[in-house]
């Protein structure tokens, strides 16, 4: 058996290795990002793979957007100013704006309608503010996004469609 001092030196080296590896475990979190930056992995090339290949770029459809309010409404509901031109299959986002003009909380829901009526089956909504009840504090202003895809099966002669929402108040004002 060699002197115990040799054992202590060896174990000290091993303890340093263990502590260094503990720190390395934490360092891995930023290191992965650094490695991906250097090699370009998981960056542009990977994002390219995520591109939607189902977009029919040969034609486009004009979507007109409308926001309606009833008479005497105490809120302002506005659609984007310009119609959007979209390719069937393309994921589109448009933002409506709802503002409560009163001193009281506002609870309500937007109901969609389509023109021509047959257009409704080609609107594939991924997410829409009309899916949920909206609650607004007095004078609150909300951005209401809707995400949709126009189905590629859309008939060739349909060039213009209208998506319109009407906002209805729910329940009684407290």
């Amino acid at each position: 058996m060699r002197p115990a001092i040799g054992n202590l030196r060896t174990s000290l080296h091993l303890v340093i290795l263990a502590v260094a590896m503990f720190a390395f475990g934490f360092a891995l979190v930023p290191l992965y990002d650094v490695i991906c930056d250097i090699t370009g992995l998981n960056r542009d090339a990977a994002q390219a793979l995520a591109n939607n290949t189902q977009v029919d770029t040969s034609r486009s459809v004009r979507i007109e957007l409308l926001a309606n309010v009833q008479n005497g409404a105490v809120w302002r509901f506005t659609a984007p100013n310009d119609p959007v031109n979209v390719h069937p299959g393309e994921l589109v986002r448009v933002d409506f704006v709802l503002e409560n003009l009163s001193e009281r909380p506002l609870v309500g829901r937007a109901i969609p309608s389509y023109a021509p009526a047959v257009a409704s089956k080609y609107f594939k909504k991924i997410d829409c503010f009309c899916f949920r009840e909206q609650r607004l504090a007095p004078h609150e202003k909300l951005l209401l996004p809707v995400l949709f895809v126009i189905d590629r099966k859309l008939e060739a002669d349909m060039k213009v469609m209208t998506l319109s929402y009407t906002f209805f108040q729910q329940g009684t004002l407290i």
């Binding site: 091993l14 290795l17 263990a18 590896m21 390395f24 475990g25 979190v29």
Partner: peptide
């Protein structure tokens, strides 16, 4: 010695 500390780090996180 090399990897048990990495596990310790992961569960600490």
């Amino acid at each position: 010695i090399a990897v048990m500390p990495v596990l310790a780090g992961a569960v600490t996180m």
